[in-house]
């Protein structure tokens, strides 16, 4: 049983303003024009609550679109490598949905299980996830099809539920969350009733049977469904970059020969350049193969490798696709094949 508290909206905002004043980064949903994005806020008044799902996931707080791997200084006979400098302050991510928070559980396994990734580890250690369960959903939500629910707390440090009366129910999930709430205990009230949560959370219909899919998808590699479903795919990286669990990156140098840095940048298997050999040979030579790779990676490959399906059902790839590609339709076409 998780420890329960409540916090009202004014206190929550005072807490964020204090955290900001103390030099911490607070990442929260902010409206740009039509869409809501996670972004660094300078005041609690920047926070947008009117969103079902942010356009992009919160992964950039632990895996930014560009980050320095190391910097270097070079003289004739000597080379000095320097680790990037990480802030000793906490990054508080507020408002991630349960699907997003669950993605952190996957990211943790992916980046840290074998060959632990220094940069991810540093960022993950200093990130605190205050998630918000879903009171609303839309037609593209399918978390329940991949074993996550709109009320889920996994991956979160603190999980809030909007009780729609000016108060949030706070479930304290992790040790990190416990320490945080203890440090800022004056903002929270020592009361809370978990039964208040159940009638607030959205219903998300199950769109496919995951176990059946896992069986069916094995051996689907050569099926023509990939060719048919991928004809509309334009081969950009919007889906992968919006995705909470897409982790591929490119490595590039930015520098003069004497000093500079090696950085990594988000990359995606949707681009033909991703697999192109220097010889000109491309092992994944058409868009169908690239689309297939992304879908199989989510539902088959990471399941084989980590015993984890790496799609969290957030629906972002569907919403962001310029060509209305739809991963649910692809999955259903595999189920029906």
């Amino acid at each position: 049983m998780n420890e329960l508290k409540t916090i009202n909206k004014d206190k929550l905002h005072q807490l964020f303003d204090k955290l900001i004043a103390d030099g911490n980064d607070v990442i929260a949903p902010k409206r740009k024009s039509e869409k809501v994005f996670f972004g660094k806020i300078i005041s609690s008044s920047d926070i947008c609550y009117d969103y079902i799902q942010t356009a992009f996931s919160a992964k950039s707080s632990v895996f930014p679109k560009c980050e320095e791997l190391f910097s270097y200084e070079k003289n004739d006979n000597e080379i000095k490598h320097l680790d990037p400098v990480f802030s000793d302050k906490t990054t508080i991510v507020f408002g991630s949905r349960p699907c997003d928070s669950a993605s952190f559980d996957y990211l943790k396994v992916f980046f840290l299980k074998e060959n632990p990734d220094f940069h991810f580890a540093k960022r993950y250690d200093s990130t605190l996830l205050i998630s918000m369960t879903c009171n609303k959903s839309d037609e593209h939500c399918f978390c329940t099809s991949v074993g996550i629910s709109p009320s889920d707390t996994k991956g979160s440090d603190v999980s809030l539920t909007d009780l729609e009366n000016g108060e949030f129910l706070a479930e304290i999930i992790s040790d990190k969350g416990k320490k945080f709430v203890a440090d800022y205990s004056s903002f929270f009230e020592n009361k809370g009733d978990i039964s208040q949560k159940s009638n607030k959370n959205a219903k998300v219909d199950i769109k496919f049977d995951l176990d059946k899919l896992k069986t069916k998808i094995k051996g689907s590699f050569d099926w023509d469904t990939w060719d048919k479903q991928s004809l509309a795919c334009l081969g950009c990286g919007a889906c992968a970059f919006a995705c909470p669990t897409c982790t591929c990156f490119d490595i590039q140098d930015e520098a003069s020969p004497k000093s500079g840095s090696r950085i990594r940048i988000w990359d995606t298997c949707a681009l033909s350049l991703f697999t192109l050999h220097a010889s000109g040979h491309n092992p994944r030579e058409n868009q169908a193969g690239r689309w297939r790779n992304r879908v199989l990676h989510k539902f088959e490959y990471t399941d084989t490798k980590f015993d984890m399906v790496s799609c969290v059902g957030c629906g972002r790839c569907i919403k962001t696709c310029p060509a209305s590609m739809n991963i649910i339709n692809q999955v259903i076409s595999i189920m029906e094949a």
């Binding site: 334009l234 950009c236 970059f241 988000w266 310029p322 060509a323």
Partner: peptide, 10 residues
């Protein structure tokens, strides 16, 4: 900009 190249692709 995240260099997803959606602008180019579309």
């Amino acid at each position: 900009c995240i260099k997803c190249y959606a602008c180019r692709s579309a």
